[in-house]
Amino acid sequence: MAERTGRRQWASSLHADPAPRDWSHPAQHTAVGRRLGTRPRLFWLGGGLLAVACVMALFGPWLAPYDPALSVGPPLQPPGSGHPLGTNDIGQDVLSQLIAGARTSLIVALGVAAISAALSWLVGLAAGLSRRLEAPLIGLADLLLALPSIPLYLLIVTLIGPSQTNLILTLGLLSWPAFARVVRSVVIRVRAEPYVEAARALGGSNLHLARLHLLPATLDILPTKVILTVRFAIFAEATLAFLGLAQSGTVSWGSMLSWAFSDPLLFARPVWPWLVLPPALAIAVVILATTWVTTGLQHAPATHPPSTHAETADRPLARAAPLPAEGNPPGEPAAERSRERRPTA
């Protein structure tokens, strides 16, 4: 199983392991093989697709043939020369809109991921460290997890207005609970480690412990959290825009679809393929790409609390500490399970 060794490789890049282990897997004879061979091919495909989307988002204004907001041609032109993906019903160039939509998705995704990850870690560390804060914080997380999300977003975003800032704030402030629980569970496990106890005995405050000892131990689930939240944000942004909650004047893939579907005769005319398919495929491809990247990441670090002691023994988290490697017998790294149990952002 290539994934098993890949996990070690992953962990060592984040934490300086004082006792480097021998790389015994035959797939890792060369340095290149070590880097590339351990992740599934779809991981790289997904990463490549995301890179393309990022390029579109960053250099959109220079790549797009027209201004996405203006009518630049006759309405409902089929794809052809001049307009590679045709024009919509008010003569806007579909390709230019598609490129502009990438930027909207990226901004929302990064904003939401930053807020959500920061909150997840803040709440997770606080709840794991402070007995007084634990019950209210976890109660709040449970409440938020229990609420059906789409009706809640509709309610809030309609009230405060669907500007991009509001959207990012709403999605970011409401999507932290799942990973706050994961972070807390890691903290609870790590705080029982002897090195944390030792640091506490030396007079380390909670803040000191959190910053120096617990935070580093939780960091290897950060990439998973970020990419899952990116996927969630793109998904939610598209969904809300499709339901009519998008900043007016800003092009997004979801609002392109929403616009197309506001025509009751959309499918009665042969225009739908270039009005519906480009944004729909763009959303689908980007979301699938993030999914593949997530799966690839989860082959590496285990992001779930292990259930048995044997599993705990080999966890990279536990080895983040400057403890001498005691030669723990390698536990069974539930590589199978880490793929299925995907915490949603």
């Binding site: 499918f267 959303i283 699938l288 999914t291």
Partner: peptide
């Protein structure tokens, strides 16, 4: 992974 409404659009098409 794909949003439900995209699957719906695919089936509809």
């Amino acid at each position: 992974a794909i949003p439900e409404f995209l699957i719906g659009i695919g089936l509809l098409a």
